[in-house]
Design a protein around this nucleic acid. Sequence first.
DNA 1: TTGTACGCGTTATCAA
DNA 2: TTGATAACGCGTACAA
Lengths: 351, 351
Amino acid sequence: MNIKAVAKLANVSTATVSRTINGSPKVSPDTAARVRKAMETLNFVLNTNARALGSGRSNLLGLIISDITNPFFPELVKAFEDIAVSQGKEVLIANTDYDPDRTMHCVTRMLQRKVDGVAIMTSEISEHVISFFLKRKIPVVFLDTGEPAPGISRINIDYPAGVEMAMQYLTQLGHKDISFISGPLNLNSAKTRYQAFMESSAREHLSAKAEYVQEGNHRPDGGYRAMQRILALEQRPTAVLTSNDLTAIGAMGAIFEAGLRIPQDISIIGFDDIQLSAFTEPPLTTVRIPHKDVARVAIEALLGTQDPISKEPKDGAQYKIQPIFMPRRSAGPVPGEAHSFKRRRADRLHA
Amino acid sequence: MNIKAVAKLANVSTATVSRTINGSPKVSPDTAARVRKAMETLNFVLNTNARALGSGRSNLLGLIISDITNPFFPELVKAFEDIAVSQGKEVLIANTDYDPDRTMHCVTRMLQRKVDGVAIMTSEISEHVISFFLKRKIPVVFLDTGEPAPGISRINIDYPAGVEMAMQYLTQLGHKDISFISGPLNLNSAKTRYQAFMESSAREHLSAKAEYVQEGNHRPDGGYRAMQRILALEQRPTAVLTSNDLTAIGAMGAIFEAGLRIPQDISIIGFDDIQLSAFTEPPLTTVRIPHKDVARVAIEALLGTQDPISKEPKDGAQYKIQPIFMPRRSAGPVPGEAHSFKRRRADRLHA
DNA sequence: TTGTACGCGTTATCAA
DNA sequence: TTGATAACGCGTACAA
């Protein structure tokens, strides 16, 4: 069940079989047909290991993410895979779980499998591992961290703009006491969002009480606990911004359990816009990260970043992705004040 | 940066390097040390393609799932990966999206990469593709479908038992009019759950109105729409069972939008117990599928199913997984009747 | 248009 | 305990 058996059955050389497989134009239609028939009857399956070994190319794109359990990532993975497949590439997924050891292990896997490019969608990666890829001339695209360089492309989500939209929305609704539940602050990605909040908060001259910022873990339980701490505060904020949707969902649980209403008593806004956020009660107002764009741009960067002639990495591109504000129903006017606030339709079905 | 360079630097043959890499006992400690040092200085990375080609083994376990966007699967993937890695295996993930063509493509990928075993966690796969794996003596484990056979293991979730627990719970709370929102009924997995409901419903002598069963799509939007249809019914049910948690979450949105309360006006129960279901409002009563057990058992089946001596597949094992009922707060006594119902604590933090 | 023959990096067999 | 060398299955010059 290798190329040789096919060649024998079709009465051609292995080279012709190989050419047929790879759609070479210089193989006569009828021999090609004969070869294909032989493959069919033999149930021939190409050995990609041998192919990669011989050609040096694996047709594999690596995708490193930090937490497959956070719905944002599966959505990203799916978009990435869809586009990759449409370009004739396959995807090798690796999950770091925010663990440095495991991250290193993921990088090794990518190297071992000779990927044609890697998208690193976790900011928890030491810059020096890039060199591993660069030395081997493997194109890299990063999300959310660092500067572009030859062979390295960067995708930056405009967090400040996203946070600003949310803050503007809240201040226009009369909120002045706005809390923030961050992600784990030892993570760069979380820190970036946190800083964006702090800057926006300063710009709007809001009360910058230290207790108004509580640390979560980007998971519901962290948001839940952080919200409990916020609710226990002497002077409770009237609105809460969270570092991601999962955090917001956890926080909503704590709010309801305290017998408060959303958004009448307290407003809440998430970040990411995972599919489920349209189906919480009330539907979650959030800031969407357009994950399809992220995926598209990542693959574009990976496939376009290597000069097809010299195999030298070209100058890496830099992409900026604009978040989109998604007003739903978890954020409303500040309590106790009259505001003209158009209550929106549910929007559950219309992303 | 191949084994040859390492051999040269360490003044040994490539065979010795290979033996060192693979921890062969018959290589003297000091030569091993010399080799390791050489690997270090050269930043040597093993080429797994070459290894797979030479040895015939890939160290790769395939995992085919149907919808990575459904949180149940990432949780399963993660558990599967964790165990696989702890056994020195890697995981190749493939997502079918319920698409037959794509499914076939996934199978081909597995074959091409010469996986050492495949876990097929989607029931949407024609039984004849098994032969592809069996012919090549690749162990297979299926979830939720078919009979065990040589080289094929099966994991069956006891859906009837799971549904029965939910139904018992509801009937004991006085419910007699219980609705069911199914998954897409062209899918085997959805059909199984649907049938379990129908049987349980008959057993409990419940009103088996045809309109009480509505078809969803295993996603929130499907649950939302199905619930709207149910709410429009002349005689509304007092409780709704759903085919999975995502469906339940969508249904809850529709209930709230109709101005009804959960569980005072209507009770709802999910299936799967995804992480988020503890953080909905109210927390979702559901039937847990213990995904860690599923993952553990799957890998056990894959790794134990091939006779290590003869390489002949052993008789496949059959495993039955018992679901676990997770009472939270979305199901309560039937409206308008006095019942002794202990309202549970939230349980958000304690799975 | 087709065939021959070598190389890819590793493992495995057989000698030493 | 180590070394030399033949596979493994495919791609690809180069030749025909």
